[in-house]
Simulated scan of single mutants.
Amino acid sequence: MFYYISGNLVLLEPGVAAIDAGGVAYRMSISHTTYDALPKNHKEQRATLYTYLSVREDSLELYGFASVEELSAFRMLITVSGVGPKVALSLLSVLSPEKFALAVLSEDRKAISQAPGIGPKTAARIILELRDKLASKQLASGSGEQTPGTAAGHSSNTNDAVEALMVLGYSRTEALRALKDVDIVTLPLEEIIRLALKKLIK
Rank of each mutant, 00 (worst) to 15 (best):
M1F: 07
Y3Q: 11
Y4C: 09
I5N: 06
G7D: 10
L9R: 08
L9W: 05
V10C: 05
L12W: 08
L12V: 09
L12M: 06
E13N: 10
E13K: 15
P14H: 04
G23D: 13
Y26M: 06
R27V: 14
M28T: 15
S29M: 14
I30F: 00
Y35D: 08
L38F: 01
N41L: 03
H42Q: 11
K43C: 11
A47T: 15
A47I: 13
T48S: 06
T48K: 12
Y52D: 14
D58E: 13
G64P: 02
G64K: 08
G64Y: 05
S67T: 15
V68S: 02
V68L: 08
V68R: 14
V68T: 14
L77P: 01
L77Y: 03
I78K: 11
I78T: 07
I78Q: 07
T79R: 11
V80L: 07
V80A: 06
V80S: 12
V80Y: 05
S81T: 13
V83D: 02
V83H: 00
G84I: 12
G84M: 05
V87R: 10
V87I: 13
L89K: 13
S90L: 08
L91A: 11
V94K: 05
L95C: 10
P97I: 05
A103P: 09
S106P: 00
S106N: 11
S106E: 09
D108P: 02
R109H: 10
R109Q: 14
I112K: 03
G117T: 14
K121A: 11
K121W: 09
K121H: 12
T122A: 01
I126D: 06
L128K: 09
E129P: 03
A135T: 15
A135V: 15
S136G: 06
L139H: 07
A140P: 02
A140T: 11
G142P: 04
E145I: 12
T147S: 04
P148W: 05
G149A: 07
G149W: 10
A151F: 10
A151G: 14
H154A: 13
D160H: 05
V162T: 15
A164I: 05
L165Q: 08
S171E: 09
R172K: 14
T173I: 07
R177S: 10
V182A: 03
V182T: 07
L189C: 00
E191A: 09
L195C: 06
A196K: 06
A196G: 13
I201W: 03
K202C: 06
